[in-house]
Each structure stands twice: as C-alpha cells, then as structure tokens.
Computed example of a mutant assay.
Amino acid sequence: MSTSYASAVSGDVSGRRDAARALLQQPIVTAATDREAFGLVRRHAPALKSMFADRLGYRLVVEPTFARLIKAPLGPTSPHRALRHADGSEFGAITYACLALVCAALIEPGTGERVSVDDLLEQVRADARENGIVFGDPVSEERNFAAALRVLEEWGVITESARGDEATGDEATGDEATGDEATGDGPHLDVHRDLLPHLLDTPLHGMPGPAAALARHEHEPAARRLYRRLVEDPFVARDELDDEAAAILARDRHELTRMLEDDFGLVLEVRAEGALAYDPAGMLTDEAFPGSGTLKHACLLLLTELTERFGASAATTLHVDVHTLDSVLADLAAARSRTWKSIYVRDLALLRRDVVALLVRLGLARPHENGFELTAPAARYRPVPAESKCR
C-alpha cells in the first residue's frame, strides 16, 4: 500500500469516527447548526447507517438539510437522562406535555414554515384545554412553553426569524405595512418542517401505550444490548448483566475493545466489578465530574466522606441509608453555607434529591430501599492516605 493511499484511508476512518462521535453527542445535526459535522455525516452516511444499525440497533436518517440518529431505549438500570430547564432542573410531565403540544401544533397540516410565537402559544393553550392538560399558573405556563421552544431551537427544529425578514409578500407592499403592523405583534419562528416527523422513533397514534414503544426492543441480541450499554452508560456493573451478556464481555473483550476504538475512539476498561468505555479526550462525556457548582462539589465531598468513613473499595458496593446521607449533607452544607447555593443550604431535602440524582446519572450510585448504593467506581474518590502520597 502506498504512503499516500494509506494516509487517505486513515483520514477516511478518522472522519467516519468523528462523524459517529458527533452524532452520539448530538443525535440531531443540521446544516444550519453545525455545517462541518453535518458534512462529515453526509460523506460517511452509508458506513454510519450500517454501523449504527448492526452494532447498536439505531436508525440513522440523513436528508439534504439534517441528520437524525434515532436511538433505541436503554435498559431500566441505565442512568436517567432527562431534558432540562435553563436552570438545570429536570423536565417534569407537564413540560414534556407542553413540548409534545408545541410539536403537534408545528406539524399540523396548514401550518407554514414561519409562525408567530403568540399564535403558537394560543394553539398550545387550546390543545391543552381540549386534552384536559393543566399547565398551572401563567408563570408556570410561560416557563414550560419557553423551555419547549429552547429545546426545539437547540435541536434545529425552529429558529427565531430575523425581524427584517418577517414582512414578506403582500404584507410588505402596502404604504402602511411596516414593523409589527405588517407581521403581527411578537416574534416569529422559522420552522424546519422536514425534521419534525423524525423527532420520534415511530408515530405514536397507532400504539396502545408508552410500554409498546419499549417492548419493540426487548428481544434484541445480547451482543447488541451489551455494546449499546458500553457506548451509552458511564459504567456497566457486572451484576447488572444477564448471563449471556456477561459471557460475551468475558469472551469477546478484545474484539469489543477494537470495535469501540474503531467506531467511536473509546477505550474499554474491564475489571471484576464491571466495565467502562471512556473517551480519553473527554468529548463524549455527558457531564464532567468533578466540576464546578454546588451540586458537583457536594457530590465529590459526599463521596470522599462516605468512602473514607466506611472504607469502600472497588470490590464492594456500599449501602447508605437516608439518615446517614442527611447527616453528612447537613454537616457539609453547614460548613459551606457561604459558598453553596442558598436554596440548597436552606432545603436539605432538595439537596439530597439533586445530589442522589446526579450520582445516579454519573453511574456512581443506584437507588436502593431507604437510601442508595454507591457503585464500585465511587471508590476512586476515596482519599489517598498521606503516607501513600509520599511514596
């Protein structure tokens, strides 16, 4: 093989891997939001479609203006990944309902490629009343509506129209057709209508209920389920794997290592307690940890205190009851009342809820009766004895 040809092949593999990594980070890529990533995806579309379908059970849709990676649901033991408000709090049922109503209004036959935000809100209100959905007070309603629009904008489904472009056609020809008089009060949105039908894996109108959407993936091959867990989860505990998946991990470890590197640039680490596929560059990390902010600081200090107090090791899981958890968090909050967010210092129940939720998302804890369990990777945050540091 000539040097120039080898370089071209190497570059092509690198480009395909970069495209796959981009889709894992953001399953919706549009030409408008990320032209470079979208160009890579289009260039490698056939290979990407085959890889995602065969190894992960995902479907990749590539159209002239967007690419959409439609993922299969993860198992019940996988970390929960909710959409979030701008302040970091998770979407609740009402916010998801509002998002669904906004999408339904945008895809409604007759809706154009440009809509008024005010008209859209009125349509959402009308559809909510018709379906018995109560948003609450006006402040809550506006917050949920704004959150839905923000998510759709991040996905590339909508963009705010430039004010100078809003007056078009006959509206812009009259002598008095200027400003808001020409277009109606309030901002307008441009709608990426071709992308809207691909937000969901399959239309919901023919399904008897939410469980039906999950049941379609229950009988997939164990190798595919394992590979999906390694790609998507921060940590896969060995006791969470069924016998077939555990056997595949033991037998095909070297092949899995090669596949993860080739497909996504991930490094597989397998230990007695489980497996972890991590990104050395840190680009595919959902949530960096440790990190800044009250919650991450509280989580790190909590892990340090608990693993030191109870002598947790990589070979064990540690059950922490609510009383112990509250006691440690109360001490931590009291000692840092001037630097932590005041809402967490005042409301320890809220602090406990959000700390546990973050640890579960990171794969460092699992819900357990009357508390939670620290998983094996939490042991890495156990303080190093002073004598060990000096060696």
Score class of each variant (00 low, 15 high):
residue 365 A to Y: 01
residue 65 T to D: 14
residue 86 A to M: 09
residue 1 M to E: 07
residue 238 R to G: 07
residue 233 D to F: 00
residue 251 R to C: 04
residue 358 L to Y: 01
residue 248 I to L: 15
residue 337 S to K: 14
residue 290 P to A: 07
residue 179 G to W: 05
residue 279 D to F: 04
residue 10 S to L: 12
residue 21 R to P: 02
residue 231 V to N: 05
residue 384 V to K: 09
residue 231 V to M: 07
residue 23 L to W: 01
residue 105 A to Q: 13
residue 129 R to P: 00
residue 225 R to P: 01
residue 49 K to I: 08
residue 253 R to C: 12
residue 194 D to W: 01
residue 84 R to V: 11
residue 327 S to C: 00
residue 131 N to D: 09
residue 65 T to P: 00
residue 117 V to N: 05
residue 292 S to Y: 01
residue 180 D to H: 08
residue 17 R to K: 12
residue 187 P to N: 07
residue 2 S to G: 14
residue 152 L to R: 02
residue 115 V to D: 07
residue 366 R to A: 14
residue 17 R to T: 06
residue 246 A to G: 15
residue 95 T to C: 12
residue 122 E to I: 00
residue 273 E to W: 03
residue 327 S to N: 10
residue 170 D to F: 09
residue 329 L to K: 01
residue 106 L to S: 06
residue 256 L to Y: 07
residue 184 G to M: 10
residue 343 I to A: 15
residue 266 L to M: 11
residue 168 T to H: 09
residue 228 R to Q: 13
residue 176 E to G: 04
residue 124 V to E: 04
residue 60 L to V: 04
residue 143 R to E: 13
residue 210 P to C: 06
residue 261 E to H: 11
residue 78 S to C: 14
residue 25 Q to I: 01
residue 222 A to Q: 08
residue 195 L to W: 02
residue 174 G to D: 09
residue 296 K to Q: 14
residue 48 L to K: 02
residue 291 G to L: 02
residue 102 V to S: 08
residue 106 L to F: 06
residue 162 A to V: 10
residue 206 G to M: 08
residue 151 V to C: 06
residue 184 G to K: 09
residue 63 E to Q: 12
residue 381 Y to V: 04
residue 107 I to S: 15
residue 257 T to L: 09
residue 382 R to V: 00
residue 234 P to L: 03
residue 135 F to N: 02
residue 49 K to N: 03
residue 128 A to V: 06
residue 226 L to W: 08
residue 250 A to N: 13
residue 337 S to R: 15
residue 22 A to F: 02
residue 331 D to G: 05
residue 342 S to T: 13
residue 270 V to Q: 10
residue 85 H to Y: 15
residue 197 P to I: 06
residue 153 E to S: 14
residue 155 W to K: 04
residue 247 A to Y: 00
residue 357 A to L: 09
residue 104 A to Q: 14
residue 155 W to E: 11
residue 379 A to V: 06
residue 380 R to A: 13
residue 266 L to A: 10
residue 244 E to V: 14
residue 151 V to R: 11
residue 323 H to Y: 08
residue 248 I to Y: 06
residue 342 S to F: 10
residue 379 A to F: 05
residue 145 F to M: 02
residue 103 C to P: 00
residue 10 S to N: 09
residue 191 V to S: 02
residue 366 R to I: 01
residue 374 L to G: 03
residue 71 K to A: 10
residue 130 E to L: 11
residue 191 V to W: 02
residue 94 I to M: 10
residue 372 F to D: 00
residue 37 A to Y: 05
residue 34 D to E: 05
residue 275 A to D: 03
residue 386 A to I: 10
residue 212 A to C: 09
residue 332 L to P: 04
residue 219 H to Y: 09
residue 198 H to F: 15
residue 21 R to G: 02
residue 43 R to H: 12
residue 167 A to R: 12
residue 292 S to K: 11
residue 27 P to A: 07
residue 50 S to R: 15
residue 247 A to R: 13
residue 31 A to R: 12
residue 136 G to N: 10
residue 211 A to H: 12
residue 125 R to K: 13
residue 25 Q to E: 10
residue 310 F to E: 11
residue 244 E to K: 12
residue 293 G to K: 07
residue 161 S to R: 10
residue 114 R to F: 00
residue 25 Q to N: 10
residue 324 T to H: 11
residue 300 L to P: 00
residue 341 K to T: 10
residue 283 M to W: 01
residue 301 L to A: 13
residue 38 F to N: 01
residue 285 T to S: 11
residue 132 G to T: 01
residue 174 G to F: 08
residue 7 S to T: 06
residue 26 Q to E: 12
residue 214 L to S: 11
